[in-house]
Simulated assay, not measured.
Amino acid sequence: MSERQPVDVAVGVLIDADDRFLLTSRPEGKVYAGHWEFPGGKLEAGESVEQALRRELHEELGITIGPAVPWKVEIVDYPHARVRLHFCKVLHWQGAFEMRERQQMAWQTLPVQVGPVLPGTVPVLGWLAAERGFTGATH
């Protein structure tokens, strides 16, 4: 069996002025519905990571983001898809949050208070913990 080609996904790690990060729940009807993740979505043909993230966050959350700072890339092999997650930190945005896919949102600190967390989100919590010198459980 040949290795599946990964699908490129832009992911926003939105961090507010209080150093909290935004997690959203996966909407009903999607794989892993109800699991919490960092928002984002697949790159369309010809899109850069930042262009895709800008489009996805406007479509899903109704916000317009400022600069998306590339942070880390992680490949996750889910049963339904192999994804290459391009994580970008986003510190500035405009607009009021609208949950356009009837998902939920929660501003979080470590350890997170929502669950279950999507497997691809777990490494990010570890990276945030390492940056912040946090030694406790991350999820």
Rank of each mutant, 00 (worst) to 15 (best):
V112G: 13
K42V: 03
V49D: 13
E3S: 06
D18W: 11
L128A: 04
K30V: 12
E44M: 00
L53V: 08
E44Q: 11
W71T: 08
P6H: 05
Q51D: 09
A129T: 02
T24Q: 02
M99E: 05
H139C: 12
L23F: 06
S2P: 10
D77H: 10
L85P: 09
I75M: 11
A106S: 13
F87C: 05
L57W: 05
V13L: 01
V114I: 14
P123E: 10
P119E: 04
P116C: 13
S48F: 10
L128T: 01
P6N: 07
H58W: 12
K42E: 10
L128E: 04
P39S: 12
R4N: 10
V114S: 15
T138R: 07
G136V: 07
Q5N: 06
G133A: 15
M105K: 01
R54M: 08
Q5V: 09
R102K: 06
Q104L: 11
T109D: 14
T138K: 05
H35P: 11
R82L: 04
S2I: 10
P67R: 00
R4V: 03
G133S: 09
A17H: 11
R4C: 00
P70W: 04
T64C: 03
M99Y: 03
G115K: 13
L85N: 15
V90T: 12
L85W: 15
S2G: 14
G34L: 13
W71V: 03
E74C: 10
V13W: 07
L23I: 10
Q5M: 05
L22V: 02
L61K: 00
P119T: 01
R100Y: 02
G40T: 02
V114K: 15
V117M: 08
C88L: 03
V76S: 13
L128R: 04
E60K: 02
M105L: 09
M1I: 08
A17L: 03
W127N: 01
A129I: 05
A33D: 06
E59H: 11
T138G: 12
R4F: 08
P67H: 01
V31F: 03
L53K: 07
S48I: 09
Q5Y: 05
P116Q: 08
A81F: 09
T135F: 09
V83M: 04
G115F: 14
A10P: 06
K30E: 09
A81S: 13
S25R: 07
P116M: 10
L128D: 02
P79T: 00
W36L: 07
A130E: 01
R102G: 01
S2C: 08
V11A: 07
W107F: 05
E60Y: 01
A129C: 08
T135V: 11
R54F: 11
V112P: 08
G120T: 12
H58N: 10
L22Q: 05
Q104Y: 07
P6F: 05
R82C: 05
L118Q: 14
W36G: 15
A137G: 13
E60S: 13
E47P: 05
P67I: 00
T24Y: 02
E56R: 09
R54A: 13
G66L: 04
G126W: 01
S2E: 15
W36R: 15
Q108S: 14
A129V: 08
A45Q: 06
W93V: 04
